[in-house]
C-alpha cells in the first residue's frame, strides 16, 4: 500500500511529517529575513531556508540537486554574501522605516493579492491524472539521468550557460577592479616623506597596534612610552568603518596601575 502511494507520487507519511515541520519553518525564516534589522541575520535565515529547500529536493527524489543546493548556495553563494557583508560592514543595521511614501502598503497589498491568486490558481489546476513520480526516470540513478540529459538534449544550453558563467566572472573582475588614481609611491619617496615630513616623530614608523597595550588585538591602539594611547596605530580602514574602540579607554592614567600578581 505504501509502495503504491510512492508509485503514484503521493507523499508518504514520513515525508509528510518532514514537510509539515520544515515547511512552516522555512516560511517563518523567509519572513524573518524581511523583518530582522541586521543584514547578517538575514543571511543566516536565508541559509536556513536554502538548507530546508535542499532537504525538500532530496525528499522529492532530486538527490543531485539537493547536494548541489547545499554546496553551491549554502556553501559558495552564502559565503560570497557574507564576504561582501564583511566588506561593507557586518554590524551596520538597516532602519526598517519606509522612506518612500505609499510603497509599503502597495507592496504588501500587491504581494498578498499575488500570493493569493497564485495559490488559488494552483489549487484549481489539474493535470487530469495523478503525479507520476520519478522511480522510472531515476532507474539508472539520479545523477546519471541528469548527466544523460545535460549532455544530450540540453548540451547546447549547457554550453551557452558555461559561456555566461565565464562572462560573469570576467564582468565581476572588471567591475571590482579600480584603476589606481595616483602614482604608486616608491620606497625612496616613502623614506623621503618620512624624514622630511611635517614631524620627525614619524621617522621611525608608526607604532603597531597592540604594542604595550592590554589587548593584543588589531583594533586596540598602541600605548606610547608615557602611557597614552596612539590613535594612529590602528588601521585607517577600521577607523573609517567605525570599528576602532575608543582610544581613551586604554589610557593608562585612568586605570589602576597596581600590578596584579601573576598566578
Amino acid at each position: 500500500m505504501m509502495q503504491l502511494a510512492i508509485e503514484v507520487g503521493q507523499t508518504a507519511t514520513p515525508e509528510a511529517v518532514m514537510f509539515w515541520i520544515l515547511g512552516p519553518l522555512a516560511v517563518l525564516a523567509a519572513l524573518g529575513m524581511l523583518l530582522v534589522k541586521k543584514a547578517v541575520h538575514s543571511a543566516i535565515l536565508m541559509a536556513f531556508v536554502m538548507v530546508v529547500l535542499a532537504v525538500f529536493y532530496i525528499a522529492q527524489d532530486a538527490v543531485f540537486l539537493g547536494i548541489v543546493q547545499v554546496v553551491v548556495y549554502t556553501g559558495a553563494v552564502m559565503m560570497l554574501f557574507l564576504f561582501i557583508l564583511m566588506l561593507v560592514g557586518v554590524d551596520s543595521s538597516d532602519s526598517l522605516t519606509e522612506t518612500i511614501r505609499g510603497l509599503r502598503p502597495i507592496a504588501i497589498t500587491a504581494a498578498v493579492g499575488f500570493g493569493g491568486l497564485m495559490v488559488s490558481l494552483l489549487g484549481r489546476a489539474t493535470l487530469g491524472r495523478d503525479a507520476i513520480g520519478l522511480s522510472a526516470a531515476n532507474a539508472d540513478g539520479n545523477v546519471e539521468g541528469i548527466g544523460y540529459l545535460l549532455f544530450s538534449r540540453f548540451v547546447w544550453p549547457f554550453e551557452v550557460i558555461s559561456a555566461l558563467l565565464v562572462t560573469a566572472a570576467l564582468g565581476a573582475m572588471v567591475l571590482a577592479h579600480q584603476p589606481r588614481s595616483s602614482k604608486k609611491t616608491t620606497q625612496r619617496q616613502q623614506s623621503i616623506n618620512r624624514f622630511r615630513g611635517e614631524s620627525i616623530a614619524t621617522a621611525a614608523g608608526l607604532p603597531a597596534p597592540g604594542v604595550y597595550a592590554r589587548h593584543n588585538a588589531v583594533d586596540v591602539p598602541a600605548l606610547l612610552p608615557d602611557g597614552t594611547p596612539a590613535p594612529n596605530s590602528v588601521n585607517a580602514s577600521l577607523k573609517a568603518r567605525g570599528d576602532m574602540l575608543d582610544s581613551n579607554t586604554f589610557d593608562l592614567k585612568k586605570i589602576s596601575t597596581q600590578v596584579e600578581e601573576e598566578k
Binding site: 513520480g133 550557460i161 560573469a168
Partner: peptide
C-alpha cells in the same frame, strides 16, 4: 519534475542555479 515523471525540470533547476550564481557574482561586484 516529480509530477511529470521526467528529469527535465531538474535540469532546468540546474540551469537556474548557474544563472543565479552568475547573477550573484556580477550583482555583488
Amino acid at each position: 519534475s516529480r509530477i511529470n515523471g521526467n528529469l527535465d525540470g531538474q535540469v532546468m533547476a540546474f540551469f537556474t542555479m548557474v544563472v543565479a550564481a552568475c547573477e550573484v557574482v556580477v550583482g555583488l561586484a
